[in-house]
Design a protein around this nucleic acid. Structure first.
Lengths: 197, 197
DNA sequence: GTCTATATCTTGATAGAC
DNA sequence: GTCTATCAAGATATAGAC
C-alpha cells in the first residue's frame, strides 16, 4: 500500500505551517483537517497517532538542517578557506531567513525535546554533528597552516554557538547585521597573530 | 487585601517546576493544585486565570536573568578587564547549571513568545539589553585602549551570542568544557594584534 | 480513501456553601 | 480562604458506512 500520496504531503506541509502559527498542542487534527480540506479521521489513514505524525515531521526537519547539508569539507580550498567559510555561513543564515516558519517550528521541537528523550536524543546527534563538524573543518585548516592547533576545539565550538544562535536572535531583532557578526567571528578565529600556548 | 501569602508562593514555585517537567500546557491547574496540596479553584483566589499566572511567572523569570543582574560595568577595572569578564561569564554559566529547571522553563517561554507578542516584546527587551550591554562594556574597554574600536559592535554581539547559547548547548551535551569556550571567546576579542580596519 | 457520528478524557473556569 | 460540585469547550481516537 503506497501512502506517500499528495494528501499525505498536504497534511505534513499544512501541519508544519500550523505548528509555526499556533504551536504543536493547538495544531489539532481538527484544525489541520479543516485547513487541508479533509475530515479529521482521514488523517488516521496516513498516521497512527498525533505523536507519530509529529515525530515524522521532526525527523524530516532534522535531516534538512544537518551540518553536512550546509558545510561540506571537500569544497574548501587552502587559498580561500576563511572566505568560503564566511560564504557558507551566509547561505545558512539566508536559507533560514527565507523560511518564515523555521524559527517557530524549531522552538516547538526544542520544548518537546526538553521532556521527551526521543526528540532529545536526535537533537544531541545534531548538536554533536555541528561541534565535531566545525572541529574537523578547522583541523583541515590547521593542516594547511592557516590556523594554529592551540585552542582549535574551543574556536570550533565558538563558531558552532554563533551560527546556531544567529537564527534565534534574528527572530526577535532584525535590525542587527548578522552576516557581519558571522564574518567577524570567522576572522577572529583565523587571525594570523592569534592565541598561542 | 494582601495576597503575597505562602500559598501564593507555593503555587508559583510548584508551577515553575511542573512547567520544567511537563511543559506549560500539561502543567494544568489540576496538577498544580494536587502538588501544592490545595483544591483547583483555590488557585483562582490568587490568579485571575492561567494566562495571568503564567505571565507573572514569566515577568519574575525575566527580571532574574537581566544583563545587569550579571554584568555590572562599574565592577570592571582597567588592569583586570578581560579576566573579570571571563569570571562573570563563569558565574552566569554556573548559576544556570545549578538550577535544573532553568533550561526547560526558558524553552517553554521561548515557544510561547513565538506566538504571543507580550512575551515576544519582553524577550526583545532582554536580548537588546545583552547586545547593548556588551557593546557598552567593550566601549569602556576601548576607552582604556584595551581593544580597538574597529569591529567593536560585532565583537560585542559575538560575546552575547556565545554566552547565551552556552546554556542551550549545556542542556544537551555536558561533556563539553563550556567555561573554556567562554574564556577563549573573550581572549579572541581582547587579542592585542586583533582585527584592524 | 474518505466520510459521519460518537466515545472518552482533560482542560480552564464558575457557582455557591462554609 | 478554601472547599465540593459542575459546566462547556476542545482534544485524541475509534466505529462503521460508503
Amino acid at each position: 500500500m503506497e501512502k506517500n500520496t499528495d494528501t499525505r504531503l498536504a497534511i505534513m506541509n499544512t501541519t508544519y505551517q500550523l505548528i509555526a502559527e499556533h504551536g504543536i498542542q493547538k495544531a489539532s487534527f481538527a484544525l489541520i483537517a479543516k485547513e487541508v480540506g479533509i475530515s479529521k479521521p482521514s488523517i488516521y489513514y496516513y498516521f497512527d497517532s498525533k505523536n507519530d505524525m509529529i515525530y515524522q515531521l521532526f525527523e524530516q526537519f532534522c535531516s534538512e538542517i544537518s551540518f553536512q547539508h550546509f558545510f561540506n569539507a571537500e569544497h574548501f580550498t587552502q587559498e580561500q578557506f576563511s572566505t568560503q567559510l564566511i560564504e557558507v555561513g551566509f547561505q545558512m543564515i539566508q536559507e533560514q531567513a527565507n523560511d518564515p516558519y523555521f524559527g517557530n517550528v524549531m522552538k516547538e521541537f526544542l520544548s518537546l525535546a526538553a521532556r521527551d528523550d526521543s526528540y532529545k536524543g536526535r537533537f544531541i546527534e545534531l548538536q554533536q554533528d555541528y561541534l565535531k563538524g566545525f572541529e574537523q573543518l578547522l583541523l583541515k585548516a590547521a593542516d594547511w597552516s592557516l590556523i594554529p592547533l592551540y585552542s582549535l576545539t574551543e574556536k570550533a565550538h565558538i563558531l558552532a554557538l554563533v551560527i546556531d544562535n544567529i537564527g534565534n536572535f534574528m527572530m526577535l531583532d532584525d535590525t542587527v547585521d548578522y552576516r557581519n557578526i558571522w564574518k567577524t567571528a570567522v576572522q577572529l578565529v583565523f587571525l594570523e597573530d592569534g592565541l598561542h600556548g
